[in-house]
Nucleic acid binder design. Structure first.
Lengths: 204, 204
DNA sequence: GGTGGCAAATCTACGCCGTAGAAACTACCG
DNA sequence: CGGTAGTTTCTACGGCGTAGATTTGCCACC
């Protein structure tokens, strides 16, 4: 033993790298995140990381995948609406747990086994319920389109219920403001999610 | 006159900066974009840009705003569904015109006058049609949640209809693959958009 | 014409970043 | 003990965003 001039001992592997990276992004944000800072936190030379992960882009992929893996798959055989709701809520909770990592997820293709398993589970239940194939095939795009876009907006650092506008030129939105008080709440999320699911249920 | 050692003449202003930036991102992508490269394209010293825009973050804000402004507002007084569809299509076309800029939009809060005007227009029409206030108030979040998330997925450089998975473990998605052939088409978009709008129409 | 003022544009320099390539260390096997 | 393969570190390079000082271009006014 010779090195280890920094705090944390080495014994580097993918898992330790990604979990440390997630912690670091959660704390300091994506902007301040980088290979060198991560290496500091790991108590390691920056270049050491490159023997486990190809480069910064791959590192961000790994972070994204690691956080997505926190979402547990519902193995139950409940009706498809329940499955969809369960998946959506799990996804949402992950987003709120890691608001600064979430933009990575929404921006990247998700082809991890977990994600595919969840989709297979949901679509199978829908098909068995007699939903038309085209509707079933469209559902993942619609559902995760909504989830990614909506959660991106809600977990944004500067998220506010209502941007400031002139009440004179925007009377309707002014009148609607009282209906936006539960901004970011579970109730609001459920309401919107149900709206989307209702559309799917009646499509085709 | 002394300077102008580069091709393009100066006479810098916000508009010239942002439109050049958009062109540059369209061509080379967000990763390769930076203040110095932009300055090169403008035939100008990097620091000159700072007299018109505070820094890189503000620059990206400006780019985002500039691209959003391409979406024209429908001033018609058609029914709310038609307005929603028109807005959605305009937004979608913008996204496909600038796929490499779009992630900026989806990631940022949009409080520009144009955006607010569009929302006011839509919500007013909905209210006049007798839609419950809570539903009207939720609609912007639902609609643009879907639009941002969905278009983010479709305009991604590596977007593919179906990620490769094992047909043995994912029989349903395999069976569904034929229904995904119009991936990215206007027809697919209309179908999904209508699904969302139907959910909204029947909510509350 | 001269001159003062001022905004715009530029120059210089600093501290950061990601990472290629060479070198050193470690652990294990014969 | 020597070899050898995997890991970690060292060194260095080119590029980045931008603070601060400086120069330029332009105008109004004497």
């Amino acid at each position: 033993m010779a090195r280890r001039t920094r705090g944390t001992a080495a014994g580097l592997d993918r898992a330790r790298i990604t979990t440390t990276a997630v912690t670091l992004i959660d704390r300091d944000g994506l902007d301040r995140f980088g290979v060198r800072r991560l290496a500091d936190d790991l108590g390691v030379d920056p270049m050491s990381i490159y023997h486990h992960i190809k480069g910064k882009a791959a590192l961000l992929d790994a972070v994204s995948e690691s956080v997505l893996a926190e979402v547990t798959v519902d193995a139950s055989s409940a009706d498809w609406v329940a499955i969809a709701r369960h998946t959506a809520h799990g996804y949402r909770e992950m987003a709120y747990r890691h608001p600064r990592v979430f933009p990575l997820l929404a921006t990247r293709a998700q082809t991890s086994p977990v994600a595919l398993a969840a989709l297979e589970h949901l679509t199978t239940a829908m098909r068995e319920a007699g939903i038309p194939d085209q509707v079933v095939a469209d559902t993942p795009s619609i559902l995760f389109g909504f989830l990614n876009g909506h959660l991106l907006a809600r977990t944004r650092e500067d998220a506010t219920p209502v941007p400031d506008f002139d009440p004179r030129t925007h009377p309707t939105m002014t009148a609607l403001a009282p209906n936006l008080t539960d901004f970011g709440s579970t109730e609001e999320f459920d309401r919107m999610l149900d709206t989307v699911l209702k559309g799917i249920a009646q499509a085709g």
